[in-house]
């Protein structure tokens, strides 16, 4: 992937997160290019962006060849890519979407990802999130924009692999501290 010379917002929390037990695995995801895509709702039905149709059902996301495509609103999506440099991805999408009246804006610096997995992952998240995260209600492919603790997040269900949380970079430290506290009861004593 493209090498980005930046300090990860969760670098200072990485050691503490790594000490959590296997029941609550929290791993920061590396930087990825993210582009906010706006397409008029009328033109979005069946529209394929970079080879993948836009998910038009509310609160869903679909995997793409090298990233994710997340529904953010009836005319708004978040597209991530691990294989493209942010400004090139923005240009590529802008060229593709211009004919249908869409826009693309690079928002790579806005959010950072966290992966939460393990048998207790759902219980940890439930401490600060009011959404029903049971696999029946929140299966793989579902997403939600909501609050976790006091931070606004985009929550993605990865099915068996747990959850991905996209949080604003400036809130990432707060959320990591919150998650460490929420996961404390599953850390064995001694």
């Amino acid at each position: 992937m493209a090498e980005l010379l930046r300090t990860h917002p969760l670098e200072a929390w990485a050691a503490a997160l790594a000490e959590l037990p296997d029941e609550v695995r929290i791993t920061p995801e590396p930087f990825v290019a993210m582009v906010d895509v706006r397409v008029p709702a009328a033109a979005s039905e069946g529209l394929a962006v970079r080879g993948t149709p836009l998910p038009t059902a509310p609160n869903t996301w679909t995997p793409t060849a090298d990233g994710r495509m997340v529904w953010l609103g009836p005319d708004e999506w978040l597209l991530t890519s691990t294989g493209t440099v942010p400004h090139l991805l923005e240009e590529e999408l802008r060229d593709q979407l211009r004919p249908v009246g869409g826009t693309a804006v690079d928002v790579s610096a806005q959010r950072i990802g966290l992966r939460i997995s393990g048998t207790r992952a759902r219980e940890v998240l439930a401490k600060g999130c009011s959404i029903d995260l049971h696999p029946r209600a929140f299966p793989a492919g579902r997403s939600a924009q909501t609050t976790l603790g006091q931070a606004g997040v985009v929550l993605l269900s990865l099915g068996e692999e747990g959850f991905a949380v996209l949080v604003r970079s400036s809130f990432a430290g707060y959320l990591a501290s919150w998650l460490l506290d929420a996961g404390l009861e599953y850390v064995p004593l001694g």
């Binding site: 509310p58 609160n59 609103g73 009836p74 009011s130 959404i131 939600a144 924009q145 909501t146 609050t147």
Partner: peptide, 11 residues
């Protein structure tokens, strides 16, 4: 109307 039932604090 888009996201379904959510907590009041989100609004």
């Amino acid at each position: 109307p888009w996201c379904g039932p959510r907590e009041e604090v989100e609004f």
